[in-house]
Each structure stands twice: as C-alpha cells, then as structure tokens.
Design a protein around this nucleic acid. Structure first.
Lengths: 210, 210
DNA sequence: TTTGTCTGTGTACAAGTGTGCACTATGTGA
DNA sequence: TCACATAGTGCACACTTGTACACAGACAAA
C-alpha cells in the first residue's frame, strides 16, 4: 500500500519545487499560474487539483515546509556556539551563509511577508515570533542580560528578529554582487546588532530616554 | 498649448491611481494586467502605451511619485519638533499615523521592496538610503551623539531606517485590527528605538562587545 | 482474479491577456 | 483658417488562464 502514496507525494513535491523554481527565477509568486506550475512539474494542469485547492493552498504548505527547514537551520546556528567573545559576529556570518546558500527559501519567505494573502502573511509572522521566543529562551538560559525584565526581553528579541529579517531582504538583493560587498554588509549588520546589545546592557528599569 | 498636455497628464494619473487601487484591494502589483489597469482608469487597453512602456515602467514612475510624497511627509515629521524629552515616542506616533492614513502608499512601497523587478527594488532601496542620510544630517545638526564617528553614525541611521521599514510592514498588516493593538505596537516600536539609542549613547569607539 | 479507488490524462470552452494596426477626433501652431 | 500631431478608439490576432468533465490505467484490498 506504499507505492501509491509515495508516487503522490513525489508529484506533490514536484509541484512545490516548480513553484520555488519560479520565484528563484526572480518572478513573484503571485504571478504564477496553475498551468505554469503544472507544466514545470511535468504534469497536466488539472492534476494540480489532486494536491492543492488553489495556489494559495500550495503557498501555505510551502511556508509550512520551509519553516521546518528554517527551524533546523536556526537550531544549528544556535548550537554552533563558538567563541563567546564573538557570538554576534559569528552568528551573523553563519546566518548570512545560510541565506546565500538556501537563497530560494528566503526569497519565498520574503515575498510572502508582503506579498501573499492574509493567511500566508499570518503564517510567516507567527514563524518570526517563534524565532523571537527561541531567542528569549537562549538569552535566559545563558543568563545574559539578567537585569532586563520579561517585557524588555521580548522587545529586545523582536527587535533582533526584525533587524535580521530586514537584513535578509537586503542581502538577497545584494547576493548577486561581489563578495566584498557581502563582507561589508555582514560587518555593518554585526555592528548594528552590537549597538542594540550595548543598549540592552546599559538599559535601566523604567528608563525613558529623550 | 496647455489643455492638451493637461488632459494627457490626467489620464496618466488615472492609470497610476488605478494601479494603486489594485494594491489597495489587497492584490499584489505583479498580478496586475495592462487591460485591468486600463479598464479601471476608464480607458481602452492600447491607450496605456501612450503613457508607459509596460507595467514595470508604470511602477517605476509610481515609486518616484510616492517618494516625493514620502519625503514631504518626513520633512513634516522632522519639523514638528515637539518636546525633546519624547522625540522618539512622538516621532513614532506621527509616523504610524501617516502609515495608517496614507495606507496605499506604504503598501505599494512594501510590495516593491521584495516584489518588483530589480530596477524597482533598487529605486526603493535608494529612497531608504536617502532617509538614512537625512537622519544623519539631523543627528549632526542638533549635535546629538557627538562621540560617534561618521561610520557608526551611518550604521546607526541605517539601523533606524531598517527598523522603521520593517515596522511599517507589520503595521500595515495590523492596521485592520483594534486601535488598542496599534497602541501596543507603537509602544513596542518606541521601546525598541529607545533601546537602540541607549546603545548609541553608551557606545565607545572601537567597542567590540561579545 | 476481480473490483473499486484514486492519480494523472485529454479535451473543451469561456474568459482574460499583450499588442499590432488602422482609425477618429480634437487641440495647437502656422 | 487649415493642416498636422497625437491621445484615445476599435478591431483583430494568437496566446494563456481556470476549471469542468469524461476517461484511463495502476494499485490495494477483497
């Protein structure tokens, strides 16, 4: 009873890959058509409906699948604890490495953030919140910044994720350029994060500057 | 010699407005067709070519036009200098107000950042850099953070713009919700910026934390 | 072996798409 | 006043698009 389902999952994968291929070529997901994705998957248009209700449905499943991969990546980054003197710099470098090598994944996610339907945007947003929570957990686990209360911890984590997310978009645009530009970009990004964490260390309860 | 060009500019405007209307309805610009935009502008499809080469051309002009408006808005925000004790909080509030009232503008810009063709993304990016430069000029003019060198000043400004840009995307998604949620969001955003500027004040030359 | 269940095929059709071309009508400069 | 330039029209064409429907062939369970 296995072969049957296996085949089905295979063409389902083909359809999803075909969609990714589309955005990899610089096209926006919202300009993809059922016929086009079916053609690329080497399948007849109407077969699409055996797997997905419509393209939004496919996109949603794509977000789910890619989320799993991203979580795995992030776990690796978090476990590759290197010299604690350079956590920020090294983490930035590792992350940017992933963005470049797993380019399509991040392109699709970026597009979905501002592009997709409401449900899809919601899915991406909750994924980002998940990462923020993970970050909070890490900060607490290593007892960094113990003077910050829970609320400011959340603020800090979400800020970090925001900066990383926006940087990802910029990096994707930059990735065609020279590796020198990428190096400069990573340095700048690391500096920005350092700035934030200097702020977090200097933060005093009930502070209300300017 | 006036009436002729005036008419032309008028339908040109109609076409651009029709495109904006499309994204206002939650559609992505890249799924807009020439026929659709022409229909909405109350004009025959082929008339489109009297004004734009293709939809990318229209989008580019749209970015240019909206950039002008945005610069005007930012100038107002910068000149509405309120109580210097609450510059950040008040600026955030003003800006969010603009995002909500000029919703379409910001939706189109957000879409263009990750959506449009390479030239369009480039246009939006250079617009953001313009704002960063303005911010640097402001910081220097009022002699805030005099201990930061030119390089860190740029880093700080670009970080600020990044955070604001990403916050804009989030705010646009949130704007259908309650005003309570918006209030919370503004508070969080203000906190994040405060965190950054606490960091900037505490920053020491050649600092390399963690 | 038979039988029913599905995944994928093929055909079909109405609607939507980009764009070339000849046209009309109107405001402008001579 | 007249002739010209041109913004906008109408028609035409060859696609592409979503999706309904009947079908085929393979696999699983009987």
């Amino acid at each position: 009873m296995n072969n049957r389902q296996e085949r089905k999952l295979q063409t389902r994968q083909s359809l999803m890959n075909a969609a990714l291929q589309w955005v990899e070529e610089g096209q926006h997901f919202s300009s993809l058509s059922i016929r086009e994705v079916a053609k690329r998957a080497g399948v007849v248009p109407t077969a699409f409906y055996r797997h997905f209700k419509d393209l939004d449905d496919l996109a949603l499943n794509l977000v789910d699948e890619l989320s799993l991969v991203l979580r795995q990546l992030m776990r690796e980054v978090r476990q590759n604890r290197v010299n604690p003197q350079h956590i920020i710099r090294d983490s930035v470098q590792q992350y940017c490495q992933y963005v470049v090598t797993q380019r399509v994944f991040f392109m699709f996610m970026s597009q979905s953030m501002t592009g997709g339907s409401a449900v899809i945007r919601q899915a991406v947003r909750s994924e980002l919140q998940y990462f923020a929570k993970e970050l909070v957990a890490d900060l607490q686990r290593f007892n960094l910044l113990p003077h910050l209360d829970a609320n400011m911890m959340d603020v800090l984590a979400e800020l970090t994720i925001s900066v990383m997310a926006f940087a990802t978009v910029q990096l994707l645009d930059l990735a065609d350029g020279s590796s020198q530009a990428r190096q400069d970009f990573e340095n700048k990004l690391a500096r920005q994060l350092q700035l934030i964490y200097v702020g977090a260390e200097s933060w005093k309860r009930e502070q209300e500057p300017r």
